[in-house]
Design a protein around this nucleic acid. Structure first.
Lengths: 209, 209
DNA sequence: CTTGCTTATGACAGTAGCTCTCAAAATCGA
DNA sequence: TCGATTTTGAGAGCTACTGTCATAAGCAAG
């Protein structure tokens, strides 16, 4: 029933109905007003009711768009990208090497497109404990997917302890690099920071600090 | 937060008054009843009010003993031990090596003394998302102390990115080992699991999965 | 245009975790 | 024993979050 004209599914202004467009607009409005209030008064000091009022919706509507207040900041649409990288990576390569090549490419692209927003979000994550916690949890869920994809390709079990440890370490190293980036005001070259962190893991901590 | 139940400092017959002893008893009672309720009905399904009633205190008193419900499970008195290990470790050793020797010794001791409770707690942490999050955050705070201690001894800056990345990775690797242990019913040799995880980091992920 | 279906919305009530205040009771030092 | 300090219980209140239900907005077909 569909003639696929474009490789990218949904474009703004597509023949999607008015309802869909309104939802997108509402979603954007909520996030925009929320970020503004966060900047002005801080994350904790901003209540959902205030966000709802600023976005001109009812508080209950807020939770139809974002399951929790934290999800305003943490919604992350990069997971499929990562999993895809892992699945199309060449055989016989170590996990850290695959990440160090593929993921860094993806990160470059993300920075190019959403660099500004990424900086805002990571700065919030750095400074709000609750967001830090959720971020780690969320990233670990991503890495479960990644280890499964990698395990399937290499014949290992997804419960392989070595694989899990490697994934968790890589995740932590990348997270620490990103937090360091945010701590220094998002001015340095994030790709290089992450690459250095992964290099340390690849060659082994014996040679490091 | 200092009243350890099963350690060296407090001697019976100490000059502690009745008040102190009562506080310790209350604290133990709260934890005991809470663990029982958690086992019977689950963590989320147990409210603070129920815990307070079971421990025969008022709900407001509960929060005088534990700042949050999560702290019931996560209160951790091993931090000073870790920092001490780092400070007394021989010079010129890599962080991962120091941990692999010193921390494993400490872990052995902990297992010997509190093994039962550690298993209970880690199983809870494994199965309750909120606890997992807090655990990671808490461990990271511990590792801030550790990196500071290590940095002071080696002349590095505590903001040294390599050091931070190493610490975060080691933390993640150990955490993953412990979670794997809990996932398998706390039956395997935890010390060996952690040692294998750290060995992987020490020699480098290039040789691993 | 109108009819009927689906979906989005708002108002409202309720729960749990957590904070704060204040007065009463218990404990302690002298 | 008395006065000072600490612990406690009671209760009000705040915020995140979850439900329910009737209404309203979009939408597809006749």
């Amino acid at each position: 029933m569909t003639a696929k004209e474009s490789s990218i599914p949904d474009l703004p202004g597509s023949p999607v109905g008015l309802r869909e467009r309104k939802k997108i607009k509402t979603r954007q409005a909520i996030r925009r007003e929320a970020y503004r209030l966060f900047r002005e008064h801080g994350y904790d000091a901003t209540t959902v009711d205030q966000i709802a009022e600023a976005a001109e919706i009812s508080p209950s509507t807020f939770f139809r768009y974002f399951p929790t207040k934290e999800d305003l900041v943490l919604t992350d649409e990069y997971d499929p990208v990562l999993v895809e990288i892992l699945r199309t990576a060449p055989q016989g390569t170590s996990l850290v090497r695959v990440v160090r090549t593929g993921v860094l490419d993806a990160l470059r692209e993300i920075l190019r497109v959403d660099g500004e927003e990424l900086a805002t979000r990571m700065t919030l994550v750095l400074n709000v404990p609750a967001l830090r916690r959720r971020t780690y949890e969320q990233q670990m869920q991503t890495w479960v997917l990644i280890t499964e994809a990698f395990a399937a390709r290499t014949g290992r079990s997804a419960n392989d302890m070595e694989l899990r440890v490697a994934a968790a370490s890589i995740n932590a190293a990348m997270g620490e690099a990103i937090m360091g980036w945010a701590r220094n005001g998002c001015t340095e070259d994030l790709v290089e920071l992450v690459d250095q962190a992964l290099a340390l893991l690849e060659t082994g901590l014996r040679d490091g600090p």
